Amino acid sequence: MIIPFTELAPDTLRNLLEEYATREGTEYGEREIGLDQKVTSLRCQLESGEVVIWFEPGEESVNLVLARELDGL
């Protein structure tokens, strides 16, 4: 289920983006990018519709996914 980012409180959205940006496996290549820059990038992707917040009720988990990955669902 897609959760519109606009329905989250600003602090909740920030915490979600920070948690995602610091997960293992979300490295950004050779150069170091600060947390604020990662969060800003993720927020821009949410605003553009490229990325969506996905809630999986059965697992009670939240993730950010590319919107194009959900086109077939």
Rank of each mutant, 00 (worst) to 15 (best):
E59L: 14
L66E: 15
R14E: 14
F5M: 03
Y28T: 08
P10H: 08
N15G: 08
G58L: 13
D11G: 06
Y28N: 05
E7K: 11
L8V: 05
E18S: 06
G49R: 04
E50D: 05
E32L: 01
L35Y: 05
L70N: 02
I53Q: 07
S61Q: 14
E27V: 06
V51E: 09
V52N: 10
E30W: 00
L73F: 13
E56T: 14
E27F: 11
A21E: 03
E27D: 08
G25Q: 09
E60K: 15
S48M: 00
L66T: 13
L17M: 09
F55Y: 14
E60V: 12
I3T: 03
R43Y: 03
S48A: 02
G34A: 06
V65A: 13
L46Y: 03
V39H: 07
E7Y: 05
P4V: 02
L46E: 02
V52P: 07
K38D: 08
V65C: 12
N63D: 14
E18M: 06
A67W: 10
L64F: 05
R14I: 03
R23L: 15
W54I: 03
Y28I: 05
G72Q: 13
E59A: 14
E32D: 05
L73K: 11
A67L: 08
E18T: 03
G34W: 00
S61M: 12
D11L: 08
D36E: 14
D11H: 06
N15A: 12
G34N: 08
G49S: 02
F5R: 03
N63C: 15
L66F: 15
Q37S: 11
A67G: 07
V39S: 07
V52F: 02
I53N: 06
R14H: 12
N63W: 13
T40S: 12
T22E: 15
L16Q: 06
N15E: 11
A9E: 14
E18G: 02
E30K: 01
G29R: 07
S48E: 03
I3S: 01
P57K: 09
G29A: 04
W54F: 11
L17Q: 09
E56K: 14
R68G: 10
E19S: 11
T40N: 14
L42A: 04
L70D: 04
R14Q: 15
T40P: 04
Q45M: 01
R31E: 03
E7I: 06
E60F: 13
N63Q: 15
C44G: 01
V39K: 08
L70A: 03
E47I: 00
V39N: 09
I2E: 10
S41L: 07
S41T: 13
D71V: 15
R43D: 05
I3H: 02
T6I: 04
P10L: 03
R31D: 00
G29C: 00
R43F: 05
G72H: 12
Q45V: 00
T12P: 02
N63E: 15
P10A: 07
E7R: 10
R31T: 01
F55W: 09
T6L: 07
E27M: 09
K38S: 10
E69H: 11
S48C: 00
L66I: 09
